[in-house]
């Protein structure tokens, strides 16, 4: 009997393994039914994700305030003086202000480039245990969003729309290891390919071995045919270090993204790009250093006895 049970168990295991392999094969062959399953799951999950976002936002803000205690000590001191109700209102208000600020900077950027955009709230982040960097936004095909559209924040490029559902979409962030974008250096117009590394930095590989890059150079998206997946001219990042490996065919550099991926609350999807390339119009303005007054000391030599001794 025991042997019979073991054999049945093994048979079940084999059937399940074969079924899994069958599913993998079907998916890799691009069977449409399976895409529909994922799309259905996302449609079913998005109300829960929205609800989760609403419930967790005050908690996340609170934790954020705690972790930035040193920076916001004065603000926290003020908050302590208020009662619980006012504190909750303030946190909610703070969140709305942050989102409004993000939205305003996106509109500034999109207005300069004449992009037609659809703004959306970030309702969920992809699990990092899946070794990908994605976010879910609360706008989908119903809002005119399609696959492979550029996603921006007020600071610059955020990523590209990976999957679209009726009322939500998955965005592959520029930090994803699979993310690659053609870029050019503002000013010199040298071109290269920027690849995500899974962190807030990326790796730039120049295409021309005759050109050079330097720390501080600003990168803009080069743009794709029909502006998909990338619209031209979107600020991407700044070169933070240049690698000059001996024997390397082309120069490479480490680039820090302009977008702050840790605080993404509101993003915009570029649904229509202008006919004309904005060129360097979107290049972020470098901060102007505040002049420090210098003190000039004039020294008047005092008359002294002549060395001749007269």
């Amino acid at each position: 009997m025991r042997n019979g049970g073991e054999n049945r168990g093994r048979l079940l295991l084999v059937i399940l393994i074969v079924s899994s392999l069958f599913l993998i094969t079907l998916d890799l062959r691009g069977v449409n039914v399976l895409d529909g399953l994922r799309s259905g799951t996302q449609t079913a999950l998005s109300p829960f994700q929205r609800a989760g976002n609403v419930v967790l936002t005050p908690v996340k803000n609170f934790v954020n305030d705690i972790t930035h205690l040193g920076r916001t000590r004065n603000q926290i001191e003020d908050l302590r003086k208020q009662n619980q109700k006012l504190r909750e209102q303030l946190i909610l208000r703070k969140n709305q202000d942050g989102e409004m600020e993000q939205l305003k900077s996106i509109l500034d950027l999109a207005g300069t480039a004449r992009f037609k955009i659809v703004s959306a709230k970030v309702i969920s982040q992809g699990s990092s245990l899946a070794f990908t960097r994605t976010i879910t936004i609360d706008a989908g095909s119903g809002n005119g969003i399609k696959k492979n559209m550029t996603v921006i924040s007020g600071n610059g490029l955020v990523g590209v729309v990976k999957e679209v559902y009726s009322n939500s979409a998955i965005v592959m962030l520029a930090t994803d290891p699979a993310f690659k974008v053609g870029v050019r250096i503002a000013g010199t117009q040298q071109i290269g390919i920027l690849a995500g590394l899974g962190s807030s930095t990326a790796n730039l590989q120049l295409l021309d071995n005759q050109t050079t890059i330097k720390v501080g150079d600003i990168l803009l998206a080069r743009g794709s045919i029909n502006a998909q997946p990338f619209v031209p001219g979107v600020p991407v990042g700044r070169v933070t270090s240049v690698s000059n490996a001996a024997g390397a065919v082309t120069q490479s550099a480490t680039v820090e993204y302009f977008a702050d991926f840790g605080t993404l609350g509101v993003v915009s999807v570029v649904v229509k790009a202008p006919n004309a390339d904005p060129r360097d119009a979107l290049t972020p303005v470098k901060p102007v250093p505040t002049p420090i007054p210098t003190v000039t000391v004039f020294v008047t030599p005092t008359p002294s006895a002549s060395p001749s001794g007269n």
Binding site: G9, L12, L13, L16, I17, S19, S20, L21, F22, L23, I24, T25, L26, D27, L28, L34, L37, R38, T41, Q42, L45, S124, G126, S127, A130, F131, T132, T134, T136, E163, I170, A178
Partner: peptide, 27 residues
């Protein structure tokens, strides 16, 4: 356990944040 693993893996494969093909987590 094998049956539960199959069901759970299939659910994980349906998760929108999963990047692999359907059946990957299941296996």
């Amino acid at each position: 356990a094998a049956g539960v693993g199959f069901g759970a893996g299939f659910l994980l494969d349906l998760s929108p944040s999963t990047s692999g093909p359907l059946g990957h987590w299941t296996l």
